[in-house]
């Protein structure tokens, strides 16, 4: 090897940060200038893979949407392809209608599960119980979908929805008729809660585990109960992780496609109550791409909807990942 004095500091960055990717690798032997530049670039090229993929996605969707077609009418409530009405508001609102309650429940249960794991249960017990929550992430969404559609929906239609109607019927949104056979907003929220739960629980659990032991103990040493330490010390300390959990859990619920398509009922009008059917952007896009074949206007409208979904997902992910300190989170599928 030719390089005389190897410098260990150099290893992490063979090229100083100031130099661009076109500079040669320091250890490259002297060659013709062009070959040197080329051999300097080649090792970096594969690194661009994710960035290039992201660009391909954006370009493909934006190109297919054209973006000049619809203007403000795009955000109207009126979606009716045969008469050229392409308002996506019904689906945009529908996405929020199922994702927000699902996020609420998965955060509620996620905080509870994470607190139970970190503050109350002995380690041996959590080692048995925690994997069950993680397992929820491994179940494919189409399997959730068929289970929910065939098994859970009839139960929702016959028992859960009438019961809720009987007790909460006085609330706005809970008074509507319950004749959708169980499919609809409520079932979608149920399934999405299960699907977002492993993400929220894992992130909150990790951030509570990151609270220093000294801090737990000093709280207890002041005569606080475990709950008081959780509420007044651990949760404030872990707030960034909890914040991330909310965003990434929302991203999961908002973008979920197949399970929602199977249980939400594919309506193109705004749902009138929690028992009514509706649709989300992701599910609508998934179901309608077939129909768009050979209809450029239709495909453009769906692609524009995809752009809106993509923008929302990117924003949610960028914000949600800001406070995750680790390089990546791999333990749960889809994180």
């Amino acid at each position: 090897m030719s390089s005389p004095v190897p410098d260990p500091v150099r290893d992490r960055q063979p090229i100083p940060a100031a130099a661009g990717p076109s500079s040669p690798v320091p250890s490259a032997p002297a060659r013709a200038p062009f070959a040197r530049v080329l051999s300097g670039i080649v090792p970096y090229l594969p690194a661009a893979v994710p960035a290039v993929m992201l660009i391909i996605i954006v370009v493909a969707l934006v190109h297919a949407s054209g973006f000049t077609n619809f203007g403000l009418q795009f955000f109207s409530l009126h979606f009716d392809p045969p008469v050229d009405q392409w308002g996506i508001a019904v689906f945009l609102i529908g996405s929020f209608l199922v994702a927000v309650p699902a996020l609420f429940f998965s955060m509620l249960f996620g905080v509870g599960l994470a607190v139970a794991s970190t503050a109350y249960l002995p380690k041996l017990v959590t080692q048995v119980l925690d994997p069950f929550v993680d397992l929820l992430a491994g179940i494919p969404s189409v399997v959730y979908g068929i289970w929910a559609f065939i098994i859970v929906a009839p139960y929702f239609g016959s028992t859960v929805e009438p019961t809720i109607h009987a007790y909460l019927g006085f609330l706005p949104g809970f008074s509507g008729p319950t004749q959708s056979g169980g499919t609809g907003i409520m079932l979608a929220v149920f399934i999405l809660t299960l699907m977002a739960l492993p993400i929220t629980t894992l992130l909150i659990r990790d951030s509570l585990r990151a609270v220093p032991k000294d801090l737990w103990e000093s709280g207890l040493a002041l005569g606080a109960t475990r709950w008081e330490v959780v509420r007044r010390v651990a949760i404030p300390y872990a707030r960034r992780g909890i914040f991330s959990a909310a965003f990434l859990g929302f991203g999961r619920a908002f973008g979920e496609t197949v399970a929602v398509a199977m249980v939400l009922g594919s309506a193109t009008v705004l749902p009138s109550s929690v028992y009514a059917i509706g649709n989300t952007m992701a599910a609508e896009m998934f179901e309608l791409l077939d129909s768009a074949y050979g209809n450029s206007q239709f495909l453009a409208a769906l692609s524009e909807m995809a752009v809106v979904l993509l923008i929302i997902s990117l924003v949610v992910n960028v914000v949600g990942r800001r406070f995750i300190s680790r390089l990546y989170k791999e333990q749960v599928a889809g994180l």
Binding site: G255, L309, G320
Partner: peptide, 9 residues
């Protein structure tokens, strides 16, 4: 971000 992108996209 790619991992966070919905699969339908």
């Amino acid at each position: 971000l790619l991992v966070g992108t919905p699969s339908v996209i």
